[in-house]
């Protein structure tokens, strides 16, 4: 369904992402594992910002070549990104953030149904609709970010370390919600350092190291892989 070929990202002379290819199937969840600085965020940027990509990269989504699509048009094509650092509108309320999530034309008509769904997914947000997002805890802000992305009725959700900096109990809450999102049929590409949780969510994964894909396999294979275990699981 989603397919990226030969994606490279360069910052000045530094090649942060070197010729990466990957695909995500319909209703499939795929994890990208990698240590700090491996290029995980650069990968998501490379997938969503045509201007940042080196020439030669190709991206297709649902049969359409979207290599040249502007970043602001991707949501309209069904691709929603929750970036590193969340990207919420901190000065606006939860309600405004959700409304903005439904800004793309594809989501406008069904906005009220979507709103009911995401508030069902994150009940905490329902009592906080009038709160300014910047005054919320990190976990709550992350929920707003994911909820806002879901408001756009995505077919593919791109997540950059949704568990970063959250307390263990909040991480569990977040992943429980993501399991529901996955089961509802939304494809997910998740970038994580929390290998256990992300491999429990994903059917398969890629291992990223110094900007290159150095391993791939089903979640079961990756959990059992001594290299993955050594690098990420700490045993």
């Amino acid at each position: 369904m989603f397919e990226a070929r030969s994606i490279s990202v360069r910052y000045g002379k530094h090649l942060a992402l070197d010729d990466v290819s990957l695909e995500v199937g319909t209703s499939e969840c795929v994890a990208i594992l990698g240590a700090n600085g491996a290029g995980k965020s650069s990968l998501l940027r490379g997938l969503t910002q045509a201007g940042l990509r080196e020439r030669g990269g190709v991206i297709r989504h649902r049969g359409e070549d979207i290599s040249a699509t502007n970043d602001f048009d991707l949501v309209e094509k069904g691709i929603a990104l929750v970036p590193e650092g969340r990207g919420v509108f901190a000065e606006l309320t939860v309600d405004d953030n959700l409304s903005l999530g439904a800004h793309p034309k594809r989501a406008r008509e069904s906005a009220s149904e979507r709103r009911a769904e995401v508030l069902d997914l994150f009940p905490k947000l329902g009592q906080r609709l009038a709160q300014t997002v910047g005054t919320m805890s990190g976990g709550e802000q992350q929920m707003v970010a994911v909820a806002r992305a879901l408001m756009s009725r995505p077919t593919l959700l791109l997540l950059d370390e949704p568990s970063l900096g959250l307390a263990p109990i909040v991480v569990d809450e977040m992943f429980a919600a993501l399991h529901k999102v996955r089961d509802s049929g939304v494809s997910i590409l998740i970038v994580e350092q929390n290998v256990r949780a992300s491999l429990a969510l994903a059917a398969r994964g890629y291992v990223l190291e110094a900007g290159r894909i150095v391993g791939r396999g089903s979640s079961a294979e990756l959990v059992a892989d001594p290299m993955v275990a050594k690098a990420f699981l700490g045993h």
């Binding site: 602001f72 949501v75 309209e76 919420v88 509108f89 606006l92 405004d96 409304s99 903005l100 992305a149």
Partner: peptide, 24 residues
């Protein structure tokens, strides 16, 4: 209005406008 909300979004966080499909 929805138009006003997009204005406020761009006024406060222009870098995130694209995430919700707004052409800054």
């Amino acid at each position: 209005t929805r138009w006003g909300l997009t204005m406020r979004a761009v006024a406060t966080r222009p870098a995130f406008a694209a995430l919700v499909g707004i052409d800054e």
